[in-house]
């Protein structure tokens, strides 16, 4: 009733920055509207993570802990979050938009008989619910939307809000949770983790992305080198994930990940809207493409027209030089 609840996303035992961005924004909204800010952590080791959300000012941290959460599976998470919502009765339940929150958002909305607004780039509370903006039509335009209800469920794109510290001494409250095997129904047989998939693209500050122009081993080596110099995550366009050159989890775009790093370097990517939908919010965009008319140049801050095989070696060398100074 009087709480804005933020779901804290955990991946590999670490809290995702994007969910702390959402928590930061929710705290501002709560203060503006005389509401409480609370965080919900659903994880195998949720208790040990509570301390990590304290800097962002929740007055309560709710914990749901269990071995069922070791790997993501929607039914236990759905049961945990809907159970928490039944107990806490929040006015707004906010998520960072991730593959795992997308997995449960609709089901949670149906379960709670609540309206849902996914993938928001801006939001604020109103007397009747929540209103805000979300990119649509492959992020070509923005749709202004509202949800009327109590509670309202939303998810927020990463990079939409800044982290704001405002440390608190939250009460830690553990919520009871049990789930039977019968309730879970689906089983995880195996998890295939991408090799070298160390940098979480949705959180990366710098991304080097490869497209169709990167056509062989030599090109991939240049991408690797550039990423290493800049300490960047590597992403790819759909052309290269579909052909198996890069792992599907590295795909950036409407179908893959939506990213908003400080620096995005698009190498050999023409800039179809299905790709730009996932990266147009990057702070600074650099593109290397031999076609001077490639649409990617419409959104770049620094566009290098040239053959990537000739451009990248001196580019990398110069960056190394600048770094060592």
């Amino acid at each position: 009733m009087n709480t804005i609840l933020t779901y804290i996303s955990v991946s590999d035992g670490k809290i995702k920055r994007s969910s702390l961005e959402v928590l930061s924004k929710c705290r501002l909204e709560a203060e503006k509207n005389g509401l409480k800010t609370a965080a919900l952590i659903v994880d195998e080791n949720a208790s040990s993570l509570a301390e990590k959300v304290r800097p962002y000012g929740p007055s309560e941290v709710y914990i749901v802990e269990g071995s069922e959460f070791k790997n993501h599976l929607n039914s236990p998470v759905l049961k945990a979050v809907s159970g928490a919502m039944n107990t806490i009765q929040p006015k707004v339940m906010a998520f960072a938009s991730t593959e795992n929150s997308k997995d449960i958002l609709g089901a949670l909305a149906a379960n709670q008989n609540a309206p849902a607004l996914p993938d928001m780039s801006e939001f604020e509370l109103t007397d009747k619910g929540v209103k805000g903006k979300r990119p649509v039509m492959a992020a070509k335009i923005i749709s202004r939307v509202e949800a009327v209800g109590d509670p309202v469920i939303i998810s927020v794109r990463s990079g939409s809000y800044d982290l704001i510290e405002s440390p608190s001494e939250p009460q830690i409250k553990k919520l009871d949770f049990t789930v039977t095997e019968k309730e879970i129904k689906t089983t995880i047989r195996e998890i295939l983790t991408a090799a070298g998939d160390k940098v979480d693209l949705s959180e990366a500050q710098t991304i080097v992305a490869a497209g169709r122009g990167v056509r062989d081993e030599e090109g991939r080596k240049l991408i690797d080198e550039l990423a290493t110099v800049l300490n960047a995550g590597i992403g790819a366009s759909r052309a290269l994930t579909e052909s198996g050159v890069y792992d599907p989890s590295l795909q950036i775009g409407q179908t893959g990940k939506v990213v908003s790093p400080q620096l995005y370097i698009a190498v050999g990517i023409s800039g179809a809207i299905q790709h730009t939908a996932g990266m147009a919010n990057s702070k600074v965009i650099v593109a290397v493409n031999k076609d001077p008319d490639a649409p990617i140049f419409d959104i770049t801050d620094y566009g290098i027209v040239g053959d990537l095989y000739k451009v990248l070696p001196p580019f990398i060398e110069e960056l190394k030089k600048l770094k060592s100074n």
Binding site: I142, V145, V286
Partner: peptide, 30 residues
């Protein structure tokens, strides 16, 4: 319970600089 209130354009990105010419020179300049 959810409604579209209207549509608006994406905030335009300012078009930046385009560099053409000798690959070695433009790469180092950027």
């Amino acid at each position: 319970s959810t409604n579209i209130l209207g549509f608006e354009e994406m905030p335009e990105r300012e078009t930046g600089k385009k560099f053409e010419g000798d690959p070695d020179e433009i790469a180092r300049e950027v």
